[in-house]
């Protein structure tokens, strides 16, 4: 589904990603771990096509297409979803209105008919309940005055509505209490399917207890330093990242 080869990317002329390789197949869940500032969010931003993140070398192939040739919204409509590490507020735009516009954009790209207002409401309500969000919260402005946990759950709500092919979760687990973590993990597990792939950026083993990944990668100094199975995460939890660098040296 996704093939990243020798990816180099700069932010404000500073090289952040330096020859990153990663291959992800449909049906797989990959965890990406790594020290702060190692480039995890940068990778997510490059995948989503954010302005200001310049790819200087390498390629990204998504479902057989050149992902880098697509605009941000084209990638989104083609099924690339990013759950933000820091979701922003859009004051005055109701969550409902936002979700509906977004779902319409994605569905019409897929050639699916628009949902009626009633069908959409039903779906949005049911999905919020699944995430233990009060349906009242659909009426509030996008992320406006939401708590940290609500913002993260709102990202998962969007993900579940849009049913992406490739979901990238950037530290969605950070700042969640254990109950919320369970809810979010259930949401991610619900998306898991043979046609979809998920990338979870996380600092904590905790999440991986609930959503067991197929692969774990360590991103450090702009490339994948080590890949392994779920046991790699346990090892990192016990020993930190230092030993990997020493190993690599």
């Amino acid at each position: 589904m996704l093939k990243i080869a020798n990816l180099h990317a700069t932010v404000a002329d500073t090289p952040i990603l330096k020859g990153l390789n990663l291959e992800i197949n449909a049906g797989e869940v990959h965890a990406i771990m790594g020290p702060n500032g190692s480039g995890k969010s940068t990778l997510a931003a490059v995948l989503a096509g954010r302005d200001g993140y310049e790819v200087t070398a390498g390629s990204i192939e998504y479902q057989g297409r050149d992902l880098l040739a697509l605009a941000v919204e084209e990638r989104a409509r083609a099924g690339v979803f990013l759950a933000f590490q820091y979701p922003v507020e859009i004051p005055g735009v109701s969550n409902m209105e936002f979700l509906r516009a977004s779902l319409e954009a994605v569905r019409s790209h897929r050639g699916e008919p628009n949902l009626s207002a009633v069908e959409f409401m039903k779906l949005a309500r049911a999905t919020s309940q699944q995430l233990q969000l009060d349906p009242e919260f659909l009426k509030r402005g996008v992320n406006e005055g939401f708590s940290g946990g609500e913002k993260k759950r709102n990202e998962i709500l969007q993900m579940l509505l849009l049913q992406p092919n490739l979901a990238i979760l950037d530290e969605t687990d950070s700042g969640l209490d254990i109950d919320a973590l369970q809810v979010v993990a259930d949401g991610v597990n619900a998306l898991r399917s043979p046609e979809r792939a998920i990338i979870m950026v996380t600092h904590y083993q905790r999440l991986l207890d609930y959503v067991v990944p197929d692969y774990v990668h360590v991103l450090a100094d702009g490339c994948i330093l080590r890949s392994g199975g779920p046991e790699l995460a346990l090892e990192l939890e016990a020993k930190g990242y230092g030993w990997l660098r020493d190993d690599a040296a």
Partner: peptide
């Protein structure tokens, strides 16, 4: 830019 990016990431032009 981040509001715009959020909207576009959700498929809006």
């Amino acid at each position: 830019d981040d509001q715009l990016f959020l909207c576009r990431q959700r498929g809006l032009d």
